[in-house]
Design a protein around this nucleic acid. Structure first.
Lengths: 206, 206
DNA sequence: CCGTGAAACGGAGACTATCTCCTTATCGGT
DNA sequence: ACCGATAAGGAGATAGTCTCCGTTTCACGG
């Protein structure tokens, strides 16, 4: 009873194979060229026609969403690891935000559709996004309870600021240190002043 | 001898007229559709052929740069007004950043090419950008001298964070308060803790 | 093993956008 | 009024997204 009970013919093997292969190729392609690379080029590299690509993934966003699902699981694993290993709630939030920041930098241009998905809930990326906001809220709440984060900050804002920072990092920053400076700026924004040190010298447990 | 001494024929009046008209139309068009609207559509609305549009402005960025030059002057006026009227250097920096933030929100999608121009100095927008960074550095230096801003913050980072915030504001944010929250977050980042109040309650002179 | 129908594939091509090139129209100077 | 320079106009080259439909391939039943 591994299949649906509707007695339907089982999915063709070539379909599943193509889908998997397209995803592998697309991951490689997006990593190289950024997420704005040509769709037809992905189809060609995967050795399928454009029609096949678009039947599996009706548009770029759908392809991206399917692609991110795998990485999504990695991030969830990292989230669980932080929950398990990092006792200090303030440090846990910081590490989660860093993990998030690295995740959205996986492909060039990724912050753009994610921000869009944050407002249009028709997007296949919306669910993923919402999950991240929720997780951020969890970490934030804990940090606020322990006095490690300012009480007026919201999880949604932290997520957005992480996206914005990743966006600012951009394709290739001439000034390598600016992204880090932004992270520090924002961290100083949400963190409780108790730490009192200059940014960059924040605690780094583990 | 109002013209160059090279004895060259003076510029045709229709050329100047077209250029001006294209700029007017483009400003209206970008304000409506955002800066990614079709170039040919701008040409059509201006009643000229694509060739004419592209002879005047070889690409979208050049058109944008010419367009922003006018607004640039407005911003410089505002900068001078702040210098003249705002005595407190911390408040002056805050107001300058706000002015900058409003300026880069003039057209939808404007932060993108500005960030790009920040790294590629071949862009016609690069000069404008650099000017803003310099101005930001001026205001920041003054604020730091008076103890109103943390000493390790750099002007370039503040400019980038302003761009990033404007980017986050995006087309149409479902949550209207998030952009303001980001501004507060960042302000808390650069400001000296002396103020000690929650964001949003910052001083607002004038 | 083979026939058959449903499902998936492939790619031509419709559509849109950017930008170029060359012919035609227009302007400024004499 | 004429002429040469200069700008305008728009067809079209190129590239990208996405669709439609004829063809192929697969799963299942005999």
């Amino acid at each position: 009873m591994g299949e649906a009970a509707t007695g339907e013919r089982r999915q063709r093997t070539d379909k599943q194979r193509n889908r998997t292969h397209i995803l592998e190729v697309a991951e490689e392609f997006f990593a190289e060229q950024g997420i704005t690379g040509s769709m037809d080029a992905i189809a060609k590299r995967a050795g399928v026609g454009p029609g096949t690509l678009y039947r599996h993934f009706p548009n770029r966003e759908a392809l991206l969403a399917a692609l991110l699902q795998a990485r999504d699981e990695e991030l969830e694993a990292r989230r669980d690891a932080i929950r398990r290993e990092v006792a200090d709630s303030r440090a846990a939030l910081a590490q989660w935000l860093q993990a998030l920041g690295e995740w959205v930098t996986a492909f060039d241009g990724l912050p753009e559709p994610l921000r869009a998905a944050l407002t249009e809930d028709t997007s296949p990326l919306a669910i993923t996004c919402q999950g991240f906001v929720t997780t951020t809220e969890d970490f934030l709440r804990a940090a606020q309870r322990d006095g490690g984060a300012k009480p007026w900050v919201r999880g949604r804002d932290l997520f957005l600021s992480t996206l914005a920072t990743a966006w600012a990092r951009g394709a290739a920053m001439a000034d390598e240190s600016s992204p880090d400076a932004l992270v520090s700026l924002i961290r100083t924004g949400w963190e409780t002043p108790a730490t009192g040190t200059a940014p960059g010298s924040g605690e780094d447990p583990a």
